[in-house]
C-alpha cells in the first residue's frame, strides 16, 4: 500500500465529532483459529461495534467480513493494526458511499427484499468478492452497472461501498 506525503495521518482534528459512517472490512487469515480469535479480540479492544459479521472457511484460509459504524479518523489505524497482525493474509476496507465511482455492493443475507439469487441478473459483469451465510459482496467494474440495477439494489436497502485501501 502506498501513501502520499501530502496526506496527514492520525486522529482527525475533529476527532469523535466526525460523522460516523459505515465501513466494511474483508479479512483473509491463515487457517488457524488462533489468528481468528486474535482479530476478534482486536475488534473488542479497539472498541469496534460490529453490526454485521460473516465468516467463511476457504481452502487453507478463513475469511471474515465485518460491517460497523466508525469515524473516518480511526479507520486507517484499525486497518493498519489488522494488516500487521501475524497470520493475516489480506485485508481490504470499504466505505459506504465514498467515492462517486462506488463499485462494490454488499447484500446482507438477513434482508429478504431481494433474493441473492437475482444478483447475477442485475450485475452480470460483477465478481463475487465475498460470499457467506447469505451475505454477498460484489465487485462491479466501473461503469458496468446499469443505473436501474443500482437503483433496485439501493431501494432494497443494500449498501454501496467503495474500496479505501487493501494490503
Amino acid at each position: 500500500m502506498r501513501r502520499k506525503f501530502s496526506t496527514t495521518f492520525g486522529p482527525s482534528k475533529l476527532g469523535k465529532k466526525d460523522a460516523a459512517v459505515k465501513w466494511l472490512f474483508t479479512i483473509d487469515t491463515e487457517e488457524d483459529l488462533i489468528v481468528f480469535c486474535r482479530l476478534i479480540n482486536i475488534f473488542r479492544r479497539k472498541g469496534v461495534k460490529i453490526s454485521w459479521m460473516s465468516t467463511a472457511a476457504l481452502s487453507g484460509a478463513y475469511r471474515i467480513l465485518a460491517v460497523f459504524q466508525g469515524h473516518p479518523g480511526e479507520m486507517d489505524h484499525i486497518f493498519n493494526f489488522i494488516r500487521r497482525t501475524e497470520g493475516v493474509l489480506h485485508v481490504a476496507y470499504y466505505q459506504e458511499g465514498g467515492a462517486d465511482a462506488a463499485s462494490f455492493v454488499f447484500a446482507d443475507g438477513k434482508m429478504e427484499a431481494l433474493g441473492t439469487a437475482r444478483w447475477p441478473d442485475l450485475f452480470p459483469q460483477a465478481r463475487v468478492a465475498f460470499a457467506g451465510q447469505g451475505s454477498l459482496l460484489l465487485e462491479i467494474p466501473p461503469g458496468s452497472a446499469p443505473e436501474a440495477a443500482l437503483s433496485t439494489s439501493q431501494a432494497a436497502g443494500f449498501g454501496r461501498f467503495s474500496r479505501v485501501s487493501e494490503s
Binding site: M1, F9, S12
Partner: peptide, 15 residues
C-alpha cells in the same frame, strides 16, 4: 516499522 503506529496518538504530516 509498524504501520498501525502512524498517527495513532498524534496527527503527523509525513509517515
Amino acid at each position: 516499522v509498524d504501520p498501525s503506529e502512524a498517527g495513532k496518538n498524534v496527527r503527523v504530516d509525513l509517515a
